[in-house]
């Protein structure tokens, strides 16, 4: 537990001692802010729905960019060898790195709380869906971080890790949107494995255990995958 925490703390701090964190946060806020407020006054509704509709797509490329270095950089520089020959378990490393990515994704959402606050001043904001939306966003960020950790474990090249992660995240986001192209028999399955679908449910303010369980399953599956990949490298 201490070891996981030490690795988590080190990885999270690494983001903030280099410019990456600030650049990524800026890009994230610029994109979400612009897309959200450019239509906000046209709809003339006091809610964050457009913001949350957009979030899975933005996360699909922002989070893999955040997590791409977690394993790839260490494999490339060889520091992974020093880390793994310390008295740590592989699971400590995988979980520690994942938590750092997930925490970063959550921290990225903090400045967007100002959208909710400012809207509540100019209109009658229903806080229920907002709270649901943020809970969903944290879960979504964590799930995509797990995908990113997995992608990063596959290669020592950060660009490859980024693209792999992005492809998986985009697929998870869009599966339910492109369901009409699939035969009716498997549409249900594709909808169920789509992160976008489960995120939409939560962001409406409906807290269903199935949706929460879905995100935890995604996290588990991809972290376990990363563990297997790193185990196989021995």
């Amino acid at each position: 537990m201490t070891r996981t925490f030490k690795i988590f703390a080190k990885e999270l701090r690494d983001y903030f001692v280099s410019p990456i964190a600030y650049i990524v946060i800026c890009i994230f806020l610029l994109i979400t802010g612009w897309f959200f407020f450019s239509t906000f006054f046209i709809y003339n509704q006091a809610n964050l729905r457009t913001f949350f509709t957009l979030l899975p797509v933005v996360f699909s490329f922002v989070i893999p960019a955040v997590t791409m270095r977690l394993f790839a950089e260490e494999l490339h520089s060889g520091s992974y060898e020093m880390l793994l020959t310390l008295p740590v378990k592989l699971s400590d490393v995988v979980v520690g790195k994942f938590l750092a990515g997930a925490a970063f994704a959550s921290l990225m959402l903090v400045p967007t709380l100002s959208y909710a606050v400012s809207i509540s001043f100019i209109g009658d904001l229903d806080w229920g869906p907002v709270a649901g939306g943020y809970l969903g966003a944290v879960l979504l960020g964590a799930a995509y971080s797990a995908v990113g950790v997995f992608a990063s474990s596959l290669t020592r090249n950060q660009i490859v890790a980024f693209i792999t992660g992005m492809v998986i995240c985009f697929s998870l986001t869009l599966f339910d949107k492109i369901a009409i192209f699939f035969p009716a028999a498997i549409v249900g399955v594709f909808t169920q494995i789509a992160a976008g679908y489960h995120f939409e449910n939560i962001s409406k303010g409906i807290l269903d255990t199935r949706d929460v369980l879905y995100f935890f399953s995604v996290i588990f599956v991809f972290l376990y995958g990363a563990h297997l990949v790193m185990q196989e490298k021995r």
Binding site: D14, V17, S18, S77, G78, S79, E81, M82, T85
Partner: peptide, 10 residues
């Protein structure tokens, strides 16, 4: 100590 001491550079 692995060869050429690959430490965290930052």
């Amino acid at each position: 100590l692995p060869e050429s001491a690959p430490l965290y550079h930052n």
